[in-house]
Design a binder for these strands. Structure first.
Lengths: 243, 243
DNA sequence: TAGTGGTCTAGACCACCCT
DNA sequence: GGGTGGTCTAGACCACTAC
């Protein structure tokens, strides 16, 4: 396990310890070495180790007991808690034990609607890119996701969007924009005929509906997301740790 | 603003700075003093200030720009992002701008079902407490919440449960147990006749359904939660920050 | 009592943005 | 150049738990 100086040490320690938990070097329910031991072994300060362990504890991945030790949480070990879980549908599908694939249903450039223009702080005349994709788990459709962003964000105009990428990667690659945070509203909806067709489910059944807005560090709206989520195949699971 | 030594300094700084953002001492979109200035003014180390600011940044409450400064996120300022948001329904109702109230629908002691016993790691013969409550926003019913926990957890047997408390306070007060983390599954459901009656909504409309499991630091299951959530009145909103 | 995690400090150096 | 946030260190002291 070579710690390389040029890359942030905290990131390297994070990756290494996460790996050790995942590959059962530190078994489920088992105790980790003490912070001092880890610091010495990895050649970093105890503060650095604590930064990483604090992150794990916030995810519920480990349980820390003062005066005792740090233990791997066997209930969380296999849950991918990085990011909020909703950003990257492919990872979500993988975390549920399926093989992810993506079908691009539609991609078009058109003027923004009133609502879209308001949310993106542009004028209704301005052009937006609308990207509609179907995420599948083992070839079974589970999520229908629509993303809308201003066409002016596209740096390389002749470029063809890579529909296999998660939306934050598309922004990064095609627009040189970095997503800083997202606000998501979770709702429920009924399957209509169009959705039933795409998701191969029965009309009238309940679905999860996710409305998302993504912003960069300058608080500029980048993308809108509207997703329909078949929770019968895919668990939308959140872990919340106290403190 | 008196910083008292006996209580954790980080907590005091957290409270103070959160207050300043909330009461517009640092106005929406405005810039905070630099970390060094804050450290000096509050009489703490820069590390301590950074610990607090890192937490705010993770909630999306502030936006930090290297070489520039730290800014209040006007889009998040009024969103209560502490805890995951789903634990404390009364706070959730308040955060949406309503006055919360709670009606206890039913409270009983009975043997655990197979599923309950499995989830709580007890035997089906063992007794559980079932607490059904209706949370209202300005007297309008919005959440029907059922909590189930082993009767053996109750320390004071003659005691009457305080139905006005959030579940983690009940555990604390009546069982001397501290919730360390929770796992929540978010689903959608259709309103049936019973729900329609309690929530005064039409049969067949979609609802959010939350399945929650709460654990203590020893990874012992404490409580199960099953809640039906009327998202038309109450936004279930999550903020996810990148990094 | 020994060892663990919890708290907090002081300060070094770097990368980056502004003017 | 001067100030900002980003990274990292070494070490002190405390609170708690197990033995």
């Amino acid at each position: 396990m070579p710690i390389q100086r040029p890359k942030p040490i905290v990131e390297q320690v994070n990756t290494e310890l996460r790996q050790r938990i995942h590959d059962r070097t530190y078994p489920p329910g088992g105790r980790l070495p003490s912070e001092s031991e880890l610091a010495q072994e990895l050649g970093v300060s105890r503060t650095t180790v604590r930064t990483v362990l604090a992150k794990f504890a916030a995810e519920g991945l480990i349980l820390r007991k003062q005066g005792d030790g740090t233990y791997v949480n066997e209930r969380i070990r296999d849950i991918d808690t990085r990011y909020g879980g909703m950003w990257d549908f492919s990872r979500l599908i993988e975390a549920n034990g399926y093989r992810p694939s993506i079908r691009t249903i539609d991609i078009e450039q058109r003027p923004a609607s009133i609502e879209e223009a308001t949310a993106l702080t542009i004028t209704p005349q301005e052009q937006v890119i609308s990207l509609v994709r179907l995420f599948c788990a083992d070839e079974r459709p589970v999520i229908l996701a629509t993303n809308i962003f201003p066409a002016t964000l596209l740096r390389m105009n002749g470029d063809i969007l890579d529909g296999s990428l998660p939306i934050h990667k598309i922004l990064q690659q095609h627009c040189h924009e970095q997503i800083a945070y997202a606000i998501s509203d979770i709702e429920a909806a009924l399957i209509d005929e169009k959705l039933a067709n795409l998701l191969t489910r029965a009309v009238g059944q309940p679905l999860l509906k996710l409305r998302e807005r993504f912003y960069n560090r300058d608080n500029q709206p980048l993308v809108l997301g509207l997703s329909f989520y078949d929770f019968t195949l895919l668990k939308l699971r959140m872990v919340q740790a106290w403190g």
